[in-house]
Amino acid sequence: MTNDAGPEKIICPSLRFYKKAGEAVRRLLDEKDLIDRRGKPYSDDTFLCLPLTEDPDDETIRKIEEYVRETADRYGISPDPGAPERIVQTGPDAFEARPEELTVEKILGYSPAYEMIGDIAVIDGKDAENAAGIAEAILRVHPAIRTVLLSEGPVKGEFRTRDLRFIAGIEKTETLHKEYGCRYNIDLGKAYFTQRLSTERARILSLIRKGDFVVDMFAGVGPYSILIAKRAGPETVIANDKNPDAVRLLKQNIEENRVRNIIPLEEDAKDLGERYAGKADHVLMNLPHNACDFLDTAVTIAKPGGVIHYYAMTEEHDLFDGSVELIRKAAARQGREIEVLGKRAVRSYAPHQYNICLDVKIL
């Protein structure tokens, strides 16, 4: 695995994989801070090779292989016609050196916490003291960013909104965000959205099969539902949210992405049980602060063998066990049992607190 182009080179670990899976793999590697920014990636018609700071661990390689296989299956081709058993390859390689880039971290001397959603950057509240300085650095480094906001608190209320303060640029909360080939109209002041769950959304996508019936109980503006409807070929996606502004944007995004196998609803999620009892192959419960209040409904919706994807905020000392027990009790109330298929700490949310996901089959 070599690349001879370029007068100046760096030698570093590398990752070579089917390039149509590039966006999902890049996001995963970015989350783990594994991409070596000193080198330029290179590609051919089929493969992409990325420079890395170190070799990925076995769990990361496994996830990358899942993304590549899912993408290759969708396009109906072998991910590596010459060596199909080696869909992801690692090893040292030579990359053309990048000229030194200006970064927010270099300007400030430390790494602030912020995310970029469309042309809006949102600074985490913990960096409020220097929000103006951070905003100036972001606008300097990222010319596509037109607005910088400060998050002044956690997501709150039944409509899942957060307080945002304008810091710099153009004063607005509306933007268009692009992710995995989908386009989302977003109003951060009226409906919650985070780019930080993009890799998790890709993971869930990889679990959905053609013809599945999917119920997204807390769909928001549609980042799970629309991605699944557009890319996985499900029979139907029920996309529900109680927030009328979120549903208005959801409907707009359904039209924007030209998907027809979604039914948008504006209902209390507890009312979904009677209508969709025993129908769902997958039930999405992305309401991490209080999804536990809706577990009885989720169990009712899940068909025998259906899977609930349950999100929660948990403490470090009890990441998964307490949540598993809540699901087990909800299933038992309906005479059903469970099988835990997967446990995942999606991201760190606060000191010693994590946003987790459990994939649980309802028997």
Rank of each mutant, 00 (worst) to 15 (best):
N3I: 06
C12K: 00
C12V: 01
P13F: 00
P13Y: 00
S14Q: 05
Y18W: 13
K19C: 00
K19I: 02
K19E: 06
L29Q: 09
E31H: 10
P51E: 00
L52A: 07
D57A: 10
E59W: 01
I64T: 10
A72S: 14
R74Y: 15
P81R: 05
G82Q: 13
G82C: 05
E85V: 06
Q89A: 10
A97Q: 11
L102C: 03
L102W: 01
T103L: 05
K106I: 00
L108N: 08
Y110G: 00
P112A: 08
I117A: 09
I117H: 08
G118I: 05
A121M: 08
A121R: 12
D127P: 00
A131P: 02
G133E: 15
A135N: 10
E136S: 13
A137K: 06
A137P: 14
I138A: 09
I145C: 15
I145M: 13
V148D: 09
L149A: 13
V155I: 15
E158D: 12
F159H: 14
F159Y: 15
T161K: 15
T161L: 12
D163Y: 04
A168Q: 02
G169M: 05
E174Y: 07
Y180F: 08
G181S: 01
C182I: 06
R183Y: 09
R183D: 10
Y192A: 09
T199D: 12
R201T: 08
A202H: 01
K210F: 04
K210W: 02
D212F: 10
D212S: 13
M217L: 10
A219Q: 08
S225P: 14
L227A: 05
E235W: 04
T236D: 05
V237L: 01
A239Y: 07
N240C: 02
V247L: 03
K251R: 12
I254R: 12
E256L: 15
N257Y: 14
R258F: 11
R260T: 15
I263C: 14
E267S: 15
D268A: 14
L272E: 15
G273H: 13
R275G: 06
D281M: 11
H282G: 11
H282C: 13
L284C: 06
K303E: 04
P304K: 07
I308D: 01
T314L: 02
H317R: 14
E325P: 00
L326M: 10
A330G: 05
A332D: 11
Q334T: 03
G335P: 04
G342F: 12
R347Y: 08
Y349A: 13
A350Q: 07
P351F: 03
V360P: 04
K361V: 06
